[in-house]
Design a protein around this nucleic acid. Structure first.
Lengths: 223, 223
DNA sequence: TATTGTGAAATAGTTCACAGCT
DNA sequence: AGCTGTGAACTATTTCACAATA
């Protein structure tokens, strides 16, 4: 892919995953009144290496000034645009159990560009109640109101996740953040990202166990 | 690193991150009474390619039977051991705001091997209250009770995260799951994994924007 | 002079395809 | 006959190191 002319636009996935990090670091710098930042400083703030940061940014275009650094505001702007944060994205949280409830109340989603607009559940006992200032609705209702691009946050129990995803996709959802501890299958063109608490703990456990072992001699010596 | 003799024990990070996935898929199969599974089927259930699954498993040793497949129970056991789930891991949730509260109530952590044992906050108004059957304590109290290996789940606001992490580390914590939307710096030997809701949404937004664009001609045509 | 942007080298991860077992 | 385990090929990502340049 990519003829020489279309040189722009082919951002590696690993880079995309770091752009939000840079954006947050830039916001922190901005709020401290910093106007220009070097790749070294920004990398430090974002927890990456400076060479990697420069490579990442080079995929967006040439927004730095040699010998000087990057303009904080300008770079924020460019990254925001690249990430599509000039759009307004509406979020629907599906599944109002413990986790869904918490996510609705949690401010973390309400970054610039995103707002939680719908809370969905299928339990009649929950539908109609108010959580964090929003009425809980069912899928039929969501279908009525659903506009353009919604992002669905799946917070159902695992056994309900696939069906909930299917219903959301039927409504036109093409981006899903899946908190349910299970895999869901989706048609091509639908993007799923998974956040899995148990998995993260297990990965930590692996490393902690490993670290413990390493502390004494290498493996194989006394095993 | 790694002499030829130490051939075992050098599991790629990418593989480690998938082991919990396999474990969950195996648990599902087991509960359905399946006793033997092929790499093809298990890969399907876990959402990966069969060749990759086989390569991953080969890092743990040779637990499959050619022409047959993998014994579900045996493989679960081996992966569990590898992940350190034969230990019991105690989890302390630090920060009892909306998110911490929810995480405490959420069952998702209580997979085999992990149990949430302490809820920590520094706000006197919260300390002493009971959440999900546990009393909220302060760091001093945690220091009293803290035993061997704790995993800390950071759910503080961003400005408090670094200090909370430092305190946890002073108590001997070496594994941190960070839900606070900020970077924390830790000494070598301490492992941090980050779960960041805003970041995930931004990555989804990027892809959704991209997908939208691709639907009509390539970029650059009408821009 | 200080710092970016980037080829080239190094490393990590994935996929292929088939030999080797059961 | 069927399925695993794995070398070899391929692709992606990171790191290095330095030429380009404001």
């Amino acid at each position: 892919m990519s003829t020489a002319s279309a040189a722009r636009r082919e951002i590696p996935e690993a880079t995309v995953a770091r752009l939000p990090l840079y954006l947050r670091a830039l916001a922190a710098l901005d709020s401290r009144g910093v106007e220009v930042v070097s790749s070294e400083e920004l990398a430090e703030a974002a927890g990456v290496r400076s060479a990697g940061l420069r490579k990442d940014l080079s995929h967006l275009g040439s927004y730095g000034v040699r010998g000087v650094g990057y303009d904080v505001e300008r770079l924020s702007e460019e990254i925001s645009r690249e990430l599509g944060l000039h759009h307004d994205w509406s979020v629907a949280i599906i599944g109002m159990g413990n986790l869904g409830h918490a996510l609705a109340a949690y401010g973390g989603f309400a970054t610039r560009g995103f707002s939680v607009r719908w809370l969905v559940d299928e339990d009649p006992a929950i539908i109609g109640t108010e959580i964090a200032g929003l009425q809980v609705i069912d899928f039929a209702e969501l279908a009525q109101q659903a506009p353009e691009s919604i992002i669905a946050v799946l917070a159902t129990p695992p056994h309900a996740a696939q069906q909930a995803a299917d219903q959301a996709i039927a409504l036109g959802v093409r981006s899903i953040l899946n908190f349910a501890p299970c895999m869901i299958t989706v048609p091509p063109g639908v993007e799923v990202r998974k956040v899995d608490l148990a998995t993260e703990l297990q990965i930590l456990a692996f490393h902690e166990q490993r670290g413990r072992d390493d502390e004494f001699g290498k493996w194989g010596d006394a095993r």
